[in-house]
Design a protein around this nucleic acid. Sequence first.
DNA 1: TTAGTTGCAAATCGTTTGCATCAAG
DNA 2: CTTGATGCAAACGATTTGCAACTAA
Lengths: 144, 144
Amino acid sequence: MNNIGNYSNILKHEGLKNTKHRNVILEVIENSEQPISAEQIFLKLKEKKNSISISSVYRILESLVSKGLITKSNITGDSKATYEFNRSEHKHHLICTGCKKMFTVDGCPLEEYEKRLKSTMDFDITGHKLEIFGLCKECKHINK
Amino acid sequence: MNNIGNYSNILKHEGLKNTKHRNVILEVIENSEQPISAEQIFLKLKEKKNSISISSVYRILESLVSKGLITKSNITGDSKATYEFNRSEHKHHLICTGCKKMFTVDGCPLEEYEKRLKSTMDFDITGHKLEIFGLCKECKHINK
DNA sequence: TTAGTTGCAAATCGTTTGCATCAAG
DNA sequence: CTTGATGCAAACGATTTGCAACTAA
């Protein structure tokens, strides 16, 4: 619950105009427990009586990604992209293949490994995507 | 260069009919150095004078994925899905954000980590996707 | 013979774009 | 005022689907 609806400093710092839509979208993404799709954002704004067109959602998301404020992924296996707030802490997600819920896990097991790769492969590593699949506490018992 | 065009045993074992198309597609995927898209497969078959419709390519890919013979990912960042042969060895890819080439690295740094997660999160892990981004030997000098 | 497989064209889905209008700086 | 932001509808690319013809088992 940070930045209650006020991201103007951040936006100004990135050279983006401070519009209501950008503020609300940043708020929605920052306060979302899970990575969220463009359509889900669009619907959230509708709930909040903040009418916006879906194309503007996409355009805003693109600009926020390009400024590094949020991150885009295509992880769920289906075709929709999802977006998440760029926090300093490094997190990954457990994705339940049963109920499709995502669970966040703190920390990242890859730091050492990446250092090793950097020297053995002569490859400058700038980032990674890691998603772990399985069955959550509840779904493992349902035995589908 | 395994299974030179003959995957009939594998297909029979999975309860899939042994058609020429399925054989050639499996061959193309198994012998591809990198994850390959549906369209690339379609074009490869054309080269090989094995005319097929793009919709059949998608249908075959879907059935091979569901049988666990190949794996589908949406990793490249753009919207196309890619497919790779399911080998027993576990491999990941370095993706160069400069030239978009992929480099395969053997081994996987996650086995221990997953065991730990399994106990701390009460989550049965069945798999994961890991892709590492950066700049390859050549592109890091270009300094874009 | 028959259930599974294919090609084709049309449909769908997520996303992007052109353009005229509008609003923030 | 000027540049960037928006809404709308149309365009787009990747993938899916309905249906009739076909073919492996």
